[in-house]
Design a protein around this nucleic acid. Structure first.
Length: 848
RNA sequence: GGGCGCGUAGCUCAGCGGGAGAGCGCUCCCCUCACACGGGAGAGGUCGUUGGUUCGAUCCCAACCGCGCCCACCA
């Protein structure tokens, strides 16, 4: 180490992530470590495609956790020498992006309509060029080792080809079709949306009971919260087993206000217990009614149009009203004609658009759909037979559950930003093809595809598909693992599996790891609009990327978790600890020794052995996607075993400068533990690594990941040092309770002299001096010493005796139980006997 | 309504058949030449309730009480 760097190391007594992280990251980029050659086979290589963030997005806590996990896996495998690719890219996010740009236009006093479609999409592209890389830059701050030279976008040229090919192929198979069906109309967006983009909210409406006069006298009373939709009623349904209405079935009712006869039908769906047991059927505005209508061959039409106004299908006097106005008018007329039977407040859940937040208006609309059943079947099979593993179990069950019923997917959107449907019309003709049709007069369908349609192709479309001969596709597809959160299992994960099987005949990834959703500290959803969001970039600025990564990994589990600032601080503290422990080693170790575990001294064998166990447990945890234990085991080893014990033990030998073993062992252990930590805390570990003498690799990012070496496991050394640690702690406890000042050396005597470290760390001086001991701690007799508070000593001893009496009693009771001795496993009984014996002898040592 | 999961130290969470753990917080002592983002010592829990299985249950089973999520929605 040159003098300049040495000075820096000496002067920097705290890990200061800010400037260092940026510098280290530049070094990685310049080294080209994130940009693997497209060579080798998918089996040899390791690859992950990132769940593409929205171009409009900013890094939130979910991305930060998601990225931390993927980066840990990517770095681990890169260090294992595999050709490793983390595919980066962004999603064009139709609705979100269009909304952002429209907002910008509004502030400039213009609008999408004013610009026209072509100009508008140009503006969106401009916006994308200018701001689209924001989130990508934010991933860099997290330390994400994505391949920034292979960034993809769901609307780039090659990707468009993939989308068209898939659309056309599914159309030709008959899975994709166009038709008039009931869809979820989002009035805020002015577009149809899919079932998966809906959330249900509790709403209090008024439940109206309305009388429908029956043919030949009498009436049927139906209940509804949307009286205006009665204008589109095509039947009244009752349960076939409902005696009350047996006679009515088959008759016809007169639809009030419209004065149109509608049949009374019997259908299982009707719950006789609810309301009056009679249900008005409106196939044009209610999903259940739509189904019932299909079963009974009823006409389906909407009286509320896409513009939210009453259509010509309704009686003239209502036409052109908004739905709300129509509701008032309908209610007024019903009251006037004395057909309103009751009005009660009613709380129920109602669909709202995830996108615009507006209440969904189900209505009949001409849209494109994709049937899912055929695609779903193989996607269930590959998960059942283990070709795709979904971890943890809960997520597996959710996946399976979600696949049970898959209604057709509405794939067309009435937007301008996105993949335009490869569909052209001319008069009654429809042309579907990857290229525009020949001839005059064709008009392309104005709609674009649901963003998830293109996302569903992500793992293979990003690698060159439909061209399966690209080097990237051949080297990296299928990918290894998909890392995501629970909320998009059905929306995205399932569809990727479906399309991949359909078009590449391979699974897109062999593992799906589903991680926690991070909630706000108070347990609510973390969201900007609720004001509960915590910005990961603030955490990075304040505590460093390593701290945030550690914290998030330590938090995550198989269920949702609350964000814990304390865990991030724990990560920050660990980074600082790593930095400082390394300073101690690097500034004092000899640089003329070969880093290697030395076996002369028991404590050197001990740390080597403990390190192997740490490597094993950390490795096993990551491989099982148990990041929290991986990172906490690393913490425990580093802080407690390496720093608190080993460094304190070897310090003197290190300062001494003569001892080669201490330097060799320490430098070796440091290199190993830095490598072990690197996937999780890449910045500190890389920075420290740059100071190592005799470093094995040009950078830690490509240093071999440590593998546990069983030949270094030394149980004798572990026992010996373990005993010494226990004794040291017992002596320190005694000292504290007896009020002996920290600096006061205690005189002591022991039959078998304990390890030197006890003497030094517990400040005890062993001698052969005679004299009556004032206390016995773990076989060590403590001699009278200045500063001992005799009363405290006696109190403490009595306290211990009391505890021992209790333990002895407990042990005797247990062993006195014949059934325990007879039925419990022998080793359990033996252990109980040993414990009892130990307690008895210690109690005796303390004088009863 | 169906499915999944959770109730363990003041807080956030591990543990899941043989004597309760971590981080933070709290108390006491220490600015000891790597680190006060530090070191040493400690207090704190009838492991939601009630039954059951077992020699033994925080851990398995059942019921109940709270809480969360997902799916389907009885108008």
């Amino acid at each position: 180490m040159d003098a300049e760097r040495r000075k820096t190391l000496e002067a920097t007594t705290r890990w200061e992530p800010g400037a260092v992280e940026q510098r280290v990251f530049r070094g990685w980029l310049e080294g080209g470590y994130f940009h693997p050659p497209a060579e080798g086979t998918p089996a040899q290589n390791y690859s992950i495609s990132i769940p593409p963030p929205n171009v409009t997005g900013a890094l939130h806590m979910g991305h930060a956790l998601n990225g931390s996990i993927q980066d840990s896996l990517i770095r681990l495998n890169r260090m294992r020498g595999r050709n490793t690719l983390w595919v980066l890219g962004t999603d064009h996010a139709g609705i979100a992006t269009q909304a952002v740009v429209e907002k910008e236009l509004a502030s400039q006093g213009t609008s999408r309509e004013e610009l026209g479609r072509e100009k508008f999409t140009e503006r969106v592209w401009e916006w994308k060029e200018q701001y689209g890389s924001t989130i990508v830059e934010q991933y860099k701050r997290l330390g994400a080792s994505c391949d920034y030279d292979r960034e993809r976008f769901t609307l780039d040229e090659g990707y468009v080809k993939a989308v068209h090919k898939v659309f056309v192929a599914l159309y030709e198979k008959g899975y994709i079709y166009r038709g008039d069906y009931l869809v979820n109309w989002d009035p805020g967006l002015g577009s149809a949306i899919s079932d998966l983009e809906i959330e249900n909210r509790e709403v209090t409406d008024t439940l109206y009971e309305i009388a429908y006069p029956l043919e030949g006298g009498g009436e049927l009373v139906v209940a509804t919260v949307r009286p205006e939709t009665m204008l589109a009623d095509t039947a009244v349904a009752v349960n076939p087993d409902d005696d009350r209405y047996r006679d009515a079935v088959g008759k016809s009712a007169n639809l009030p206000l419209v004065e149109r006869p509608i049949p009374v039908i019997a259908d299982e769906h009707v719950d006789p217990e609810f309301g009056t047991g009679a249900l008005k059927i409106t196939p044009g505005h209610d999903p259940n009614d739509f189904e019932i209508g299909q079963r009974h061959d009823l006409e389906a039409f909407s009286v509320i149009g896409e513009d939210g106004r009453i259509t010509d299908a309704a009686p003239e006097r209502f036409r052109g009203m908004t739905a709300a106005e129509a509701q008032e008018a309908v209610i007024a007329e019903l009251r006037e004609r004395d057909l309103m039977r009751s009005e009660e407040p009613y709380t129920h859940s109602v669909p709202f658009s995830h996108r615009s937040g507006k209440r969904i208006e189900p209505l009949i609309s001409l849209q494109w759909f994709c049937r899912m059943d055929e695609l779903a079947k193989p996607a269930v099979e590959v998960v059942e037979d283990g070709r795709v593993r979904i971890i943890p179990d809960g997520a597996y069950r959710q996946y399976m559950h979600g696949m049970e019923t898959l209604p057709p997917w509405t794939i067309s959107r009435q937007l301008w930003w996105g993949h335009r449907l490869p569909v052209w019309y001319r008069g009654d003709e429809t042309y579907v093809g990857e290229e525009p049709p020949e001839g005059e007069g064709w008009e392309q369908d104005p709609d674009v595809l649901d963003t998830w349609f293109s996302s569903a192709l992500w793992p293979f479309a990003t690698l060159g598909w439909p061209d399966t001969s690209t080097a990237e596709f051949k080297a990296f597809f299928p990918t290894d693992v998909l890392v995501t959160a629970r909320d998009i299992i059905s929306l995205w994960v399932a569809r990727m599996i479906m399309t991949s099987l359909e078009f590449t005949e391979q699974v897109p990834f062999s593992d799906v790891y589903v991680h926690s959703v991070i909630q706000a500290p108070d347990g609510r959803r973390m969201s900007k609009s609720l004001g509960t969001g915590i910005d990961p970039l603030d955490e990075i600025t304040e505590h460093g990327a390593d701290a945030l990564r550690f914290g998030l990994l330590a938090m995550t589990s198989t269920q949702d978790v609350r964000f814990s600032q304390a865990r991030v601080q724990q990560g920050r503290d660990l980074a600082n600890k790593m930095w400082n422990a390394s300073r101690l080693i690097l500034l004092n170790a000899r640089d003329d020794v070969e880093p290697a575990p030395r076996s002369e001294r028991v404590e050197d064998r001990w740390i080597a052995s403990r390190l192997q166990r740490a490597i094993r447990s950390v490795t096993e945890s990551v491989e099982a996607y148990d990041f929290s234990h991986a990172v906490l085991d690393l913490y425990e080893f580093f802080w407690s075993e390496l720093c608190d014990w080993y460094l304190e033990i070897v310090k003197a030998r290190l300062y001494d400068g003569e001892d080669e073993d201490a330097s060799a062992t320490l430098l070796w252990a440091l290199e190993q533990v830095l490598a072990l930590a690197h996937p999780f805390m890449p910045f500190v570990s890389e920075e420290i690594y740059s100071y190592l003498p005799n470093a094995r690799a040009e950078a830690l990012v490509v240093h071999p990941f440590p593998e546990p070496d069983d030949s270094l496991i030394d149980e004798d050394a572990e026992n010996e040092i373990g005993d010494a640690i226990s004794l040291t702690r017992a002596l320190r406890r005694w000292r504290d309770l007896a009020g002996v000042p920290v600096k006061q050396v205690l005189g002591a005597r022991a039959a078998a002299r304990p390890h030197d470290l006890v003497s030094r760390l517990a400040k005890v001086e062993f001698s052969e001096d005679g004299g009556e001991p004032i206390a016995t701690v773990g076989g060590v007799e403590l001699l009278p010493t200045q500063g001992v508070d005799a009363k405290a000593v006696e109190a403490r001893i009595e306290e211990r005796r009391e505890k021992l009496r209790g333990e002895v009693k407990r042990g005797e009771g247990k062993l006195g139980n014949e059934r325990f001795v007879a039925k419990a496993p022998a080793d359990v009984v033996d252990a109980e006997r040993e414990k009892l014996a130990a307690y008895r002898s210690e109690l005796e040592e303390l004088g009863g």
